[in-house]
């Protein structure tokens, strides 16, 4: 696996814990179903918690527990499925989530800048992905015409600079 940071400081790989497995020490990711059934476990210093959501699971349901989560992993089933953009944006804009949003699944390099502008922090890519292609695609466009969660400086009109923070 290759991880592409869309913003600096995204954290390392966290293990995803099966629903029936005990929680290990250290940072780990639970499923949305486990979190929903059992609530957010008290980790009391033993590591941070993340949650993994499928594309059809409502991020709004995290509203009550979001402050105790450090990472949300969104898994895309197909690159055409644009729901992930709304999931990420909802986390940032409606739930005010300030932690890491990580996206896994078959996304295209041409979607990296869109994901970044919707608030995604990092991407999990196949191990054989060519990072240079991703960096180049993410740095391609220098202007955007609409607000994003990045609050880029605006004007004149609707324009804002959209150069990727880590696009090189």
């Amino acid at each position: 696996m290759l991880r592409l940071e869309l913003e600096p400081g995204a954290s390392a790989a966290w293990p995803e814990i099966a629903d029936d497995a005990p929680l290990p020490d250290g940072d780990c990711i639970l499923s949305f179903a486990r979190l929903r059934a059992g609530g957010v476990p008290d980790r009391s210093g033993s590591g941070r918690l993340g949650v993994s959501l499928r594309i059809d699971e409502p991020v709004e349901a995290l509203a009550g527990s979001i402050e105790r989560l450090a990472l949300v992993l969104l898994t895309v089933p197909a690159f055409r499925d644009g729901r992930v953009f709304t999931q990420a944006r909802t986390l940032r804009e409606r739930l005010d989530f300030a932690g890491e949003i990580r996206v896994a699944g078959p996304v295209l390099p041409d979607q990296a800048a869109f994901l970044e502008r919707c608030g995604v922090s990092s991407l999990v890519l196949p191990a054989n992905a060519d990072e240079a292609v991703w960096r180049r695609a993410n740095a391609r466009m220098h202007t955007a015409y609409q607000p994003s969660v990045r609050d880029e400086p605006a004007g004149p009109g609707l324009k804002r600079r959209s150069e990727a923070a880590s696009g090189g």
Partner: peptide, 12 residues
């Protein structure tokens, strides 16, 4: 302009 390369609504 707003809809051009909209980050959220390009894969509807």
């Amino acid at each position: 302009q707003w809809s051009t390369l909209h980050p959220e609504f390009s894969f509807l």
